[in-house]
Amino acid sequence: MTEGTVDAVAGGVAMPEHVSYTLRVNGREHRVSEAALTESLLYVLRERLDLKGAKGACEQGECGSCSVLLDGLLECSCTVLAAAAAGREITTVEGLTPEDGSLTDLQDAFVAEGAVQCGFCTPGLIVALSDLLRRNPAASELEVREAISGNLCRCTGYGRILAAVQAVQEARSA
């Protein structure tokens, strides 16, 4: 059972509830050493790998602000056991943007349409909507609403977000 197995703590006093493993995030391998067994992927991304894009709020999969892609599937990183994500391809909002630090067309549209107010929910929405537009470029408004039904935004009332999606759809199909 070597492949996909998380290493036991090497050397020293073995701490049975601590684990070391490697995560593949945005195409790069990251070693995680002696993490607590039950740490969530969200915690490891933010506190150990210094990737602050995914936001922590509800810690129970309700708000979507920690959304990431796991092997291309949208999930809440707060309800993913980090050690069990070893071997999976993890994509965070940081991994969606071009290398030169510019923004994606969806991020630009969020800015242009006023879809960002306090900004806390924005990374999760960008990940969820990037995923939707990749799978379903011509998504209807109802499909957009269902796709972000797990992403809470308490500022915008969602109107500006829907407008940003529509602007991207129009620009991409032009």
Binding site: L37, E59, C78, L81
Partner: peptide, 20 residues
Amino acid sequence: GTDFMVEANAGHRRPGSVVS
């Protein structure tokens, strides 16, 4: 993990080992 991690995040579950 959608049920288990909610309890783990709240500190209510601390298993000694996990089989995913």
